[in-house]
Design a protein around this nucleic acid. Sequence first.
DNA 1: AATATAAATGACAGCGCTGTCAATTTGTTA
DNA 2: TAACAAATTGACAGCGCTGTCATTTATATT
Lengths: 339, 339
Amino acid sequence: MKATINDVAKHAGVSIKTVSRVMNNEPSVRQATRDKVMATVAELNYQPNLAARNLAGTKSYSIAYVYDNPNAYYIIDMQNGILSACRQQGFELLIHPCNAEADNILEEITNMVKQSRVAGLVLTPPFSERPEFVKRILELDVKVVRIMSGNAAPDEITPCIMVDDHQAALTITQHLIDYGHKNIGFIAGGAEHKSSIERLQGYKQALSNNGIAINDDFIIEGEYSFESGVNGAKQLMTQAEKPTAIFSCNDEIAAGALFAARLMNIAIPQQLSIAGFENSPFSRQTWPRLTTADQPNRQIASDATNLLIAQIRQQNTKQICTQYTPELVVRDSTGQVQA
Amino acid sequence: MKATINDVAKHAGVSIKTVSRVMNNEPSVRQATRDKVMATVAELNYQPNLAARNLAGTKSYSIAYVYDNPNAYYIIDMQNGILSACRQQGFELLIHPCNAEADNILEEITNMVKQSRVAGLVLTPPFSERPEFVKRILELDVKVVRIMSGNAAPDEITPCIMVDDHQAALTITQHLIDYGHKNIGFIAGGAEHKSSIERLQGYKQALSNNGIAINDDFIIEGEYSFESGVNGAKQLMTQAEKPTAIFSCNDEIAAGALFAARLMNIAIPQQLSIAGFENSPFSRQTWPRLTTADQPNRQIASDATNLLIAQIRQQNTKQICTQYTPELVVRDSTGQVQA
DNA sequence: AATATAAATGACAGCGCTGTCAATTTGTTA
DNA sequence: TAACAAATTGACAGCGCTGTCATTTATATT
């Protein structure tokens, strides 16, 4: 019923091996032969059996997406981006959610890699930001691509997609400053996340660019969660000196800050401006709609995947490092400071 | 480096085939032998090679999750539920997002099934609600489990997990009625979704149970989106006769309704009660927090997957049909009707 | 035209496992 | 205890493909 390589070989009048060569884009096949085989492949609607490929070959045609992240929108975007690249390239995707804090996490991933024979891994934070961990993974003889926060290649270990959170945060903060804000609060996403650290740096940079002193009371240690936004905003707005704007480290925190503002009867943006980061779908659905920075996750993910697959195919030996800078999206949660 | 079945066989002093038997839980292996093999398996940290299994056996150890749904929370919950069952049972999961409206969708899925040799499919709406489509899929000799809306086995084609949207909607509506509401609006999720139809039925049933006449002006044809909630609520609240409560077909619509209420300066729940459906994470993050119905998607998904795998293993021939009824979660967006 | 060289193709083993069927061991009964 | 059935185990082929290496064919060189 389902055509095998054998069927194709017979129909085309060539050996199995030649069909294999054509299917793998190997050189040393005459164009005429290649065409003949391709025609037969099309005619029989032949598709190579992945299991057999994986078993027989030293190469593998599957990659895995390893993540530990509770953000559904982020995951879905990443996943879709990875998947679209995989489909284009004839790769299979395994998804592997796991707990980054588990102490046998390396072993777990090792087992997964060995059992599934994946050729590569797409790593997002926090995994991508642990060089030692990544090095251990590389010992397993899998390729890795990392998506992480920063504005320069962190090392030469793997290709990376860098997200310039620093620059984007600077832009958001500048936007607030341009609206006349000087007392700007910051609710962080947790020191274990490089993105949060980078965003904080960008925030500080913007202040200092404009000659505004950094007030430590305005910087709240939080985490990437709604609750953290609620608590952070409460804390900021019950201090003696209150900010007139809050830069939340992501949209979820911003949504929490919005919630807290409602609770405290603070009008947004009249009495307080709030900005988020990520441009997740619900940033358009809060009241008021959130000013934020758009992070093109889907694009980043498919880019990363293409980089990974190129590496697997050994089409390039260099460790490429691409950069994305999230762009400011101004909506209704930020406004001119009131006199 | 990575242990194979051969290594285990040698270490344990049995044949490869016996190890295979143990790994597959086949009968006709003496307990002593089984223990010995299991011990060796543990010692060598042996894990069967999926590719080899898939290639050699007639059985397959992978299933696919086929979906077309823009709701990130839903997808993630489903995916996690499916994945946890897969891990427990040693199955591999392929995810296959696709466009249900594409006219070659059957062909697309056929190719995926053939190429990946999946043994089963987890189908959610809209796929699960197309009997003819499902029948065609079954011809491919894959097992299928369906998750769908309803309160009775729709047919005997496949095992199903039914979600009793009718009952849950009735409960929500009753909750509104108990708060004294008689003029209750309904924003539907689209006639192409069985869940929306069922929820509408439940809403009507509740009204009729309480002797309240059904007012067609209160029933808005919408779709499962935020915008639809915004528009639906606007329409309802600009009519001559306005409802005092709105039952939105899902949380996203409810969030839209909330947004519209803000726009129109309508106080929630004092002037208008709004209820959602799904209990998605953001229903806890709106202002006010949404009253909704909790749909245990993760649980439903792992249940469904277990049913599918049992079917694949032919442990049962009967077409089991399980039922879930989402439970009312009362939060702050609904309240006593004001005089 | 004969030879050397490179390009193209094919034969064959084997990846790690399962299915089939035959061989062996164990338990049961007269 | 012999004879037989049932339970247990193993030998072997082969799933569909790729890697290796040998063979054939085309091209260049003298």
